[in-house]
Amino acid sequence: MKTIYSILLLLLVANTSIAQNKYLTKSGKITFFSSSPMEDIKAENNQVLSIIDTSNGNMAISILMKSFHFEKALMQEHFNENYVESDKFPKATFKGKITDFESLSTLEKISIAGTITIHGVSKQITIQAAVKKTDDLISLKGDFLVKVADFNIEIPSVVAKNIAKEIKVSFELNHKPYKK
Protein backbone atom coordinates (compact mmCIF):
# COMPACT_ATOMS: atom_id res chain seq x y z
CA MET A 1 0.00 0.00 0.00
CA LYS A 2 2.79 2.36 0.94
CA THR A 3 4.54 1.77 -2.35
CA ILE A 4 1.35 2.56 -4.24
CA TYR A 5 1.05 5.83 -2.38
CA SER A 6 4.65 6.71 -3.00
CA ILE A 7 4.25 5.86 -6.70
CA LEU A 8 1.14 8.02 -6.85
CA LEU A 9 2.94 10.84 -5.10
CA LEU A 10 5.88 10.46 -7.46
CA LEU A 11 3.55 10.59 -10.45
CA LEU A 12 1.90 13.69 -9.06
CA VAL A 13 5.23 15.41 -8.53
CA ALA A 14 6.42 14.30 -11.96
CA ASN A 15 3.24 15.67 -13.47
CA THR A 16 3.54 19.08 -11.90
CA SER A 17 7.18 19.32 -12.90
CA ILE A 18 6.20 18.53 -16.49
CA ALA A 19 3.59 21.24 -16.37
CA GLN A 20 6.17 23.71 -15.15
CA ASN A 21 8.41 22.91 -18.08
CA LYS A 22 5.89 24.18 -20.55
CA TYR A 23 5.84 27.81 -21.57
CA LEU A 24 3.08 29.06 -23.82
CA THR A 25 1.63 32.09 -25.52
CA LYS A 26 -1.66 32.46 -27.35
CA SER A 27 -1.05 36.03 -28.41
CA GLY A 28 2.31 35.81 -30.14
CA LYS A 29 2.98 38.29 -32.86
CA ILE A 30 4.15 37.41 -36.36
CA THR A 31 4.44 39.98 -39.10
CA PHE A 32 5.63 39.66 -42.64
CA PHE A 33 6.95 42.27 -44.93
CA SER A 34 7.31 42.27 -48.68
CA SER A 35 9.25 45.06 -50.25
CA SER A 36 9.15 45.62 -54.01
CA PRO A 37 9.70 48.59 -56.32
CA MET A 38 5.94 48.85 -56.81
CA GLU A 39 4.71 48.72 -53.22
CA ASP A 40 5.42 47.53 -49.71
CA ILE A 41 3.06 44.99 -48.22
CA LYS A 42 2.83 44.29 -44.53
CA ALA A 43 0.62 41.93 -42.57
CA GLU A 44 0.32 41.28 -38.87
CA ASN A 45 -0.97 38.36 -36.84
CA ASN A 46 -1.40 38.70 -33.07
CA GLN A 47 -3.05 35.34 -32.46
CA VAL A 48 -0.04 33.06 -32.75
CA LEU A 49 0.11 29.98 -30.55
CA SER A 50 3.58 28.94 -29.46
CA ILE A 51 4.70 26.34 -26.93
CA ILE A 52 8.17 25.63 -25.58
CA ASP A 53 9.03 22.57 -23.54
CA THR A 54 12.12 23.54 -21.53
CA SER A 55 12.82 19.94 -20.48
CA ASN A 56 13.84 18.96 -24.02
CA GLY A 57 13.93 22.23 -25.96
CA ASN A 58 11.06 21.26 -28.23
CA MET A 59 9.06 24.05 -29.69
CA ALA A 60 5.78 24.18 -31.64
CA ILE A 61 4.13 27.15 -33.30
CA SER A 62 0.70 27.26 -34.92
CA ILE A 63 -0.51 30.15 -37.04
CA LEU A 64 -3.96 30.74 -38.49
CA MET A 65 -3.56 32.18 -41.98
CA LYS A 66 -6.88 34.01 -41.79
CA SER A 67 -5.59 35.89 -38.76
CA PHE A 68 -3.14 37.93 -40.82
CA HIS A 69 -4.34 41.49 -40.98
CA PHE A 70 -3.32 43.59 -43.98
CA GLU A 71 -3.56 47.31 -44.38
CA LYS A 72 -5.75 46.86 -47.45
CA ALA A 73 -8.73 44.52 -47.39
CA LEU A 74 -8.15 43.61 -51.03
CA MET A 75 -4.61 42.42 -50.31
CA GLN A 76 -5.93 40.28 -47.46
CA GLU A 77 -8.52 38.79 -49.80
CA HIS A 78 -5.92 37.99 -52.48
CA PHE A 79 -3.54 36.55 -49.89
CA ASN A 80 -6.16 34.20 -48.48
CA GLU A 81 -7.99 33.25 -51.65
CA ASN A 82 -5.31 33.17 -54.34
CA TYR A 83 -1.87 32.79 -52.78
CA VAL A 84 -1.89 30.73 -49.60
CA GLU A 85 -5.38 29.25 -50.18
CA SER A 86 -6.41 29.54 -46.55
CA ASP A 87 -9.57 27.50 -47.01
CA LYS A 88 -7.49 24.49 -48.08
CA PHE A 89 -4.53 25.20 -45.78
CA PRO A 90 -5.88 27.16 -42.80
CA LYS A 91 -2.70 26.83 -40.70
CA ALA A 92 1.01 27.34 -40.97
CA THR A 93 3.09 25.45 -38.45
CA PHE A 94 6.61 25.22 -37.15
CA LYS A 95 7.96 22.30 -35.17
CA GLY A 96 11.51 22.39 -33.97
CA LYS A 97 14.10 22.16 -31.28
CA ILE A 98 16.06 24.86 -29.54
CA THR A 99 19.74 24.01 -29.63
CA ASP A 100 21.50 24.69 -26.30
CA PHE A 101 18.16 24.80 -24.51
CA GLU A 102 19.89 23.85 -21.25
CA SER A 103 21.55 27.24 -21.10
CA LEU A 104 18.46 29.15 -22.16
CA SER A 105 18.62 31.50 -19.20
CA THR A 106 22.23 32.52 -19.78
CA LEU A 107 22.28 32.88 -23.56
CA GLU A 108 21.27 35.97 -25.45
CA LYS A 109 20.94 34.37 -28.85
CA ILE A 110 19.75 30.89 -29.72
CA SER A 111 19.06 28.97 -32.86
CA ILE A 112 16.01 26.83 -33.45
CA ALA A 113 16.14 24.10 -36.06
CA GLY A 114 12.98 22.55 -37.38
CA THR A 115 10.36 22.19 -40.05
CA ILE A 116 8.16 25.00 -41.24
CA THR A 117 4.94 24.19 -43.10
CA ILE A 118 3.15 26.79 -45.19
CA HIS A 119 0.57 26.13 -47.90
CA GLY A 120 0.93 22.41 -47.28
CA VAL A 121 4.64 22.42 -48.13
CA SER A 122 7.25 21.56 -45.48
CA LYS A 123 10.80 22.87 -45.41
CA GLN A 124 13.76 22.48 -43.08
CA ILE A 125 14.81 25.76 -41.55
CA THR A 126 17.10 27.14 -38.87
CA ILE A 127 16.02 30.36 -37.22
CA GLN A 128 18.08 32.68 -35.04
CA ALA A 129 16.32 34.36 -32.15
CA ALA A 130 17.16 36.78 -29.39
CA VAL A 131 16.12 35.21 -26.12
CA LYS A 132 15.26 36.54 -22.71
CA LYS A 133 14.36 34.11 -19.95
CA THR A 134 13.16 34.84 -16.46
CA ASP A 135 11.13 32.67 -14.10
CA ASP A 136 7.82 33.64 -15.64
CA LEU A 137 8.78 34.58 -19.15
CA ILE A 138 10.59 33.23 -22.18
CA SER A 139 10.72 35.84 -24.85
CA LEU A 140 11.89 35.03 -28.38
CA LYS A 141 12.36 37.68 -30.99
CA GLY A 142 13.84 37.63 -34.46
CA ASP A 143 13.27 37.43 -38.15
CA PHE A 144 14.05 35.23 -41.13
CA LEU A 145 13.49 35.15 -44.86
CA VAL A 146 11.04 32.90 -46.66
CA LYS A 147 11.15 32.27 -50.40
CA VAL A 148 7.64 32.42 -51.86
CA ALA A 149 8.52 29.89 -54.58
CA ASP A 150 9.69 27.33 -51.99
CA PHE A 151 6.15 26.88 -50.76
CA ASN A 152 4.47 26.31 -54.08
CA ILE A 153 2.74 29.68 -53.90
CA GLU A 154 1.99 30.97 -57.37
CA ILE A 155 2.01 34.69 -57.96
CA PRO A 156 0.36 35.72 -61.26
CA SER A 157 2.79 37.55 -63.56
CA VAL A 158 0.53 40.64 -63.57
CA VAL A 159 1.28 41.32 -59.90
CA ALA A 160 4.70 39.65 -59.76
CA LYS A 161 6.36 43.06 -59.64
CA ASN A 162 4.33 44.04 -56.58
CA ILE A 163 5.37 41.10 -54.44
CA ALA A 164 8.90 40.34 -53.29
CA LYS A 165 10.43 36.94 -54.10
CA GLU A 166 11.64 36.72 -50.52
CA ILE A 167 9.37 37.70 -47.66
CA LYS A 168 10.77 38.84 -44.34
CA VAL A 169 9.00 37.19 -41.44
CA SER A 170 9.40 38.72 -37.98
CA PHE A 171 8.29 37.17 -34.73
CA GLU A 172 7.87 38.25 -31.15
CA LEU A 173 6.75 35.50 -28.81
CA ASN A 174 6.41 36.10 -25.09
CA HIS A 175 5.82 32.73 -23.48
CA LYS A 176 4.39 32.46 -20.00
CA PRO A 177 4.52 29.36 -17.74
CA TYR A 178 1.64 27.09 -18.65
CA LYS A 179 -0.76 26.08 -15.92
CA LYS A 180 -3.81 24.06 -16.69
Binding site: K26, L64, K91
Partner: peptide
Protein backbone atom coordinates in the same frame (compact mmCIF):
# COMPACT_ATOMS: atom_id res chain seq x y z
CA UNK B 1 -16.17 38.79 -34.13
CA UNK B 2 -14.63 37.16 -37.18
CA UNK B 3 -13.70 33.50 -36.81
CA UNK B 4 -10.20 32.73 -38.10
CA UNK B 5 -9.96 29.13 -36.96
CA UNK B 6 -9.03 26.68 -34.21
CA UNK B 7 -5.69 26.26 -32.46
CA UNK B 8 -5.99 25.15 -28.84
CA UNK B 9 -9.12 27.25 -28.74
CA UNK B 10 -11.51 28.76 -31.25
CA UNK B 11 -10.18 32.17 -32.30
CA UNK B 12 -12.41 35.16 -32.98
CA UNK B 13 -10.73 38.43 -33.98
Amino acid sequence: GICTGFLMDVVLV
